[in-house]
Simulated assay, not measured.
Amino acid sequence: MFIHIQIIFYLLFFSLSTSFAQSESKAIVRAGKHPDYIRVVFTAPIDILNKSSVVLQSSGVIKIDLKSVKNLDVQPIGLLTENSTIEIMKGLKISSKDNLFFISYENIDDISVSKLSNPPRLVIDIYSFTKKSTEEPGKIAEIDKELKEPIVTQKIDTLLLDAGHGGDDKGLLGSSFSEKDLTLSFVKELSTLLNKGGKKVILTRRQDHLLTLKERNGVVKTKKYDLLISIHVSSRGDLLIYSLNKKLSHTGQSHEENAIDYKDKLLVFSEALGKELENVVTVKSVDIVPTMFLGIKRLGFLIELPNPNKFNYDRKNKERLISAIVKAVNSIE
Rank of each mutant, 00 (worst) to 15 (best):
I3V: 14
S15A: 13
L16R: 00
S19Y: 06
F20V: 06
Q22D: 10
E24I: 10
A31H: 01
G32M: 11
I38Y: 06
T43N: 13
S52H: 12
S58V: 08
K63Q: 14
K63C: 08
N71F: 15
L72G: 04
I77T: 10
I77K: 13
G78H: 07
E82C: 01
T85E: 15
I86A: 10
I88H: 04
K90I: 00
S112I: 08
N118K: 14
Y127V: 07
Y127S: 07
S128K: 02
G138R: 12
E142T: 05
E146S: 14
E149F: 09
I151V: 15
I151L: 15
T153M: 06
H165C: 06
L172H: 11
S185M: 09
F186W: 07
E189P: 02
E189R: 15
S191G: 10
S191W: 05
L194Q: 00
L213M: 13
K214H: 00
R216L: 11
I229Y: 02
S230T: 08
V233K: 03
I241N: 12
K246F: 01
G252M: 04
E256D: 07
A259T: 12
E278W: 11
E278S: 00
N279M: 02
T282C: 07
D287E: 08
V289T: 04
V289M: 06
V289W: 01
M292W: 11
F293V: 05
L294G: 11
E304N: 11
L305D: 05
L305G: 12
P308S: 01
K318F: 04
E319M: 14
A324V: 08
V326Y: 15
K327D: 10
